[in-house]
Design a protein around this nucleic acid. Structure first.
Lengths: 111, 111
DNA sequence: TAGTTCTGGAACTATTTGGTTCTATAAAAG
DNA sequence: CTTTTATAGAACCAAATAGTTCCAGAACTA
């Protein structure tokens, strides 16, 4: 039972553009802190802290290879957000002619 | 051009359980601040501020009917998050036998 | 062994956040 | 006109956040 990550932590981690950019970078494969820091006008330490936040949120795991600690993206928290969105997605996906009313008046929602 | 909402603001707004609960409540229809505050052990003012944050993030709009200001959920920022997730969704939706390698080694991603 | 590289810990700072209380204002109800 | 109701503004506070700099340790390299 390694994970018990809250949506709170995941959303908070994603609320920073630097961290989202780091995640996007990790789509191209594992990277060290120094490598991740390269595109940014921030200290390596600052990036190290960002990676720490991502790790706390379960969005990244690390494995040390020599003195390089390689970060790797983890998808589960993103899937959790996706599932949270399910509760709302039907409201914009369906072509409900009365959707306006549904949201305003709170009529019985479509099944 | 009313909206220019950032993912930053949206994710940050969603990083609070009270605010997510307010959003869920609004699926049942518009509500006043006082109504929204009812389930919580917080002051009405605190809920009013939460609604303000949601409004800043474009997740809620308000219309005042009499002295009650009715809050209503807005879906666009959620759709924006959904589209942001698109960049990652393919990685957990597809059954890529080499997905492990893709994330670790950063091999050429599937089309 | 000595030097270099990569990273995290510690301490500090400025800003933001989530909450409170008290006050002011606008509108409805008496 | 007075009172009640619903909300936001202002001031305040404690805790969290994002950044910095400096230092220490672990592991390669010469």
């Amino acid at each position: 039972m390694a994970n018990q990550i809250s949506l709170d932590d995941t959303f908070a981690a994603l609320a920073d553009p630097t961290r989202r950019a780091i995640l996007a970078r990790l789509l191209d494969g594992e990277a060290s802190v120094a490598e991740l820091a390269q595109p940014f006008a921030l200290t390596v330490r600052a990036i190290s802290k960002h990676v720490g936040v991502l790790e706390q949120a379960g969005l990244v795991t690390r494995s040390r290879a020599a003195q390089k600690h390689l970060s790797r993206i983890e998808l589960k928290p993103l899937r959790d957000i996706d599932r949270w969105l399910d509760g709302y997605r039907k409201l914009w996906e369906g072509r409900f002619d009365r959707m306006e009313d549904l949201l305003r008046r709170g009529a019985d929602k479509p099944e």
